[in-house]
Amino acid sequence: MQEPVSNFVKTNGIRLHYLDYGGNGPELVLLHGLTANARAFEGLLAAGLAAQFRVITVDLRGRGLSDKPIWGYSMHKHAKDIIGLLDHLQLKSVFMGGHSFGGLLSIYLGRFFPERIKRLVLIDAAARMHPNTREMLQPAMSRLGKTFPSFQAYLESVKQAPYNTFWEETMRSYYQADVQELSGGKVKPRSNPRHIRLAVLNVLKEPWPVYLSKQTKPALLLNATEPYTLNAPLLPPENALETARQMPDCRYEAVAGNHQIMLYGPGARQIAEAVTNFLLA
């Protein structure tokens, strides 16, 4: 897998950062989870997606190297950022996918901008997650706003998170992109917890069952069934299947791992194969 081209585009009033991994296949735009960044999918690329698609990933507003406005974290604002990126890249329509929050944003894009979407890939995203989702996300959210004495100290901290049940080197680039370096070698996560809370509040305002029922594009929903935190999956299979049934044309597939590590190791290999089969059928 080659190192991606890093670039910025002015879209919807902000400066948005994106990565273009190149390749001669059809374009696949992948949108990361709530507190993640554009490097979140490198486990999937290494597992086979890089050979099949021109993968483009994005730092959503408020994350990574993209601008971090004080306000503007609605789904509509996020969606318009992505449409501006597609316009900049002169991409009339693409395969669109996302993990968790990025999967919901993909659903939103499919509902309101269907002419720009060919098919949808939803990675552990559904209208209803686990009822204790907020509590289950606390180990991931707790890193935000903290300063760590070094990147190595930060890395050791995230390795101890309950959802990181194994480690592979493709994870390093994701965590490297997660932090900014401060004076004296200290590091701090780039995402502002206030912005993340605003994004969550705006997600909860949307009528997701309505959006699902009005989807016109075929979709693939990939569900991680292993425990994330609190000894339970973040997206229980019954909730994932409920979302799949609410869509006119959606396939469901369970994959190895939990909500986080599904993007690496055995889960990544399953996802890469399932996505390739679905999109290139």
Rank of each mutant, 00 (worst) to 15 (best):
A127E: 14
I123A: 05
V158M: 12
L144T: 14
A140D: 06
F112C: 04
W167M: 03
T133N: 06
L155D: 08
G145K: 05
K159E: 08
E169Q: 13
S150V: 11
A161H: 09
L155Q: 11
P139I: 06
S157H: 10
P149A: 12
L122Y: 13
A127K: 07
N132L: 12
A126E: 05
E135S: 09
N164V: 14
I117D: 01
P131H: 14
T133K: 10
W167R: 02
Q138D: 10
A127T: 05
P162Y: 08
P114G: 01
K159D: 01
M136H: 05
T133E: 10
Y163V: 04
K146M: 12
P139A: 01
K159Q: 06
A153Y: 03
M141Y: 08
L144E: 13
T147N: 15
P149I: 07
Y154S: 15
R134C: 05
G145Y: 05
I117Q: 02
D124N: 04
R128L: 15
V121N: 07
P162N: 13
A125H: 00
S157K: 10
E168N: 09
L122I: 11
L137S: 01
R119G: 01
Y163I: 02
F166Y: 09
F148D: 01
Q152M: 08
E115F: 02
S157F: 14
N164S: 02
R128V: 07
R128E: 10
T147I: 09
E135A: 06
T133P: 01
T165V: 07
S150R: 10
R134I: 13
T133G: 00
A126L: 06
F166R: 12
L122S: 15
R111E: 01
S142K: 06
T147L: 15
M141F: 15
